[in-house]
Design a binder for these strands. Sequence first.
DNA 1: TCCCGGACGGTTTTGATTTG
DNA 2: CAAATCAAAACCGTCCGGGA
Length: 303
Amino acid sequence: MIDLRGIDLNLLVSLDALLAESNVTRAALRLHLTQPAVSTQLARLRQIFGDPLLIPAETGRGMTRSTRALELMEPLHLALKNLEAVVRHQPSFDPQTDRRSFVIAANDNATAVLGQRLMEQLPALAGPGVRIAFVVADQPSMATRLERGEIDLLLGSERMVPASMKARKLFDEHFVVVQRKGHPRGTAALDLDTYCALSHVLVSTSGGSFHGFMDEHLDALGRERRVVLSVQHFTLVPELLARTDYVSTLPARFAERYRERLDIFDLPFEARGFTLFAAWPPRSQADPAHVWLRDTLAALASM
DNA sequence: TCCCGGACGGTTTTGATTTG
DNA sequence: CAAATCAAAACCGTCCGGGA
């Protein structure tokens, strides 16, 4: 019995071409090999099948297929077609029926602004097999956790994206100033003096800092504001602002969510915003489920 | 870990044969 | 005789296993 392990299966591809062409030279052309190469392959095939397969015609010109060869043609061709389909088959992901759990790391701004949209839309976007866990992004370990596959996707600004990761821009964000409705300051547009005189709540995602992004901008202007509170979570701030006379400088999309309870103002100075990115390990680049997640987030981000 | 040698499968070159 | 065609010979690069 012939053991497939013992033979070079590529020979069967050549045999397919040989049988189709009934001509070594043309088969070689089709296979992108030279004629002698295919000639030796034919010799090996004759050995394996114990049959001449192609017989030089009596006329001396051209070859005729042996009976065995004629029998082989059809099933061999079909088998190769099937094999080709097996190899070509791209894994796919159907969010309605497939099971997959994702872990998304993000700070609570990104989670609130973009993540919550995904949470709300999930029943419409995917079946019950798709589950998503949101975890806090703790900066230093992100690269290794992505690398290890503990986290599927990281949502963060450019400085949070590890250089070794693939990344996709989700949206540009700028900052606005937020105060409670009925704040004693009134609702006039902010000027720099007023801004600096107010009591500020700073969100320091790394924790504990009283000197943030905005303070660096003010430094450059030779000004200073009073940061009286520093918290690590964005989501604490709206509730706090609603109950006090503190103000805070927050990402615009995040602030917009509380427009009913809070008043929103432009910054009284030019300040750089940031760009939110999704980042993932190169390994996940072609994973269809991962592609679905990325595309879904990108679509939600541009809504 | 490095190096050597052989197996393997390819190419180029050459030869043999047949035909129009 | 030129063109077409298959196959043998010579050669070459790559891979892999075994020994230092």
